[in-house]
Simulated assay, not measured.
Amino acid sequence: MSSEATILHADLDAFYASVEQRDDPALRGRPVIVGGGVVLACSYEAKARGVRSAMGGRQARRLCPDAVVVPPRMAAYTTASRAVFEIFRDTTPLVEGLSIDEAFLDVGGLRRLVGPPADIAAALRARVRREVGLPITVGVARTKFLAKVASGVAKPDGLLVVEPGRELAFLHPLPVERLWGVGPVTAARLRERGLRTVGQVARLDEPSLVSLLGGGAGRHLHALAHNRDPRAVQVGRRRSSMGAQHALSREPHSPAELDAVLAGLVDRVTGRMRADRRTGRTVTVRLRFGDYTRATRSHTLDKPTAQTAPLRAAARTLLRAALPQIALRGITLLGVSVGNLDGGHTQLTLPFTAEPGPALDAAVDAVRDRFGSRALTRGVLLGRDPGVEMPRLPD
Score class of each variant (00 low, 15 high):
S3T: 01
S3F: 02
H9C: 00
F15A: 02
S18T: 12
E20M: 13
E20Y: 15
P31Q: 01
V32R: 11
I33Y: 00
G37C: 07
V39S: 02
E45H: 06
M55I: 11
R58N: 12
C64S: 12
C64Y: 13
C64Q: 07
P65A: 06
A67N: 04
V69R: 06
P71N: 11
A75M: 10
A76K: 15
A80C: 06
R89F: 01
E96F: 01
G97F: 00
F104Q: 00
D106M: 09
L110G: 03
D119I: 09
I120L: 00
R129G: 13
L134Y: 12
T137C: 06
T137I: 07
A141E: 01
K144I: 00
G152N: 08
V153N: 06
V162M: 15
L168R: 07
A169V: 04
F170H: 15
L171D: 12
L174F: 05
P175I: 03
L179R: 11
P184N: 07
A187V: 06
R191L: 03
L195W: 05
R196Y: 13
A202K: 07
D205C: 13
S208W: 13
V210I: 11
G215D: 14
A217I: 05
A217P: 00
R219W: 11
H220Y: 14
A225C: 09
H226K: 10
R228S: 04
P230L: 07
V233T: 02
R238F: 08
S240T: 15
R250A: 15
A256R: 15
L262P: 04
R272G: 08
R278T: 14
G290D: 12
Y292H: 05
T296C: 03
R297T: 08
T300R: 15
H345K: 07
L350V: 13
L350P: 02
A362N: 13
V364S: 09
R368G: 11
F371D: 14
G372A: 14
P386Y: 12
P394E: 14
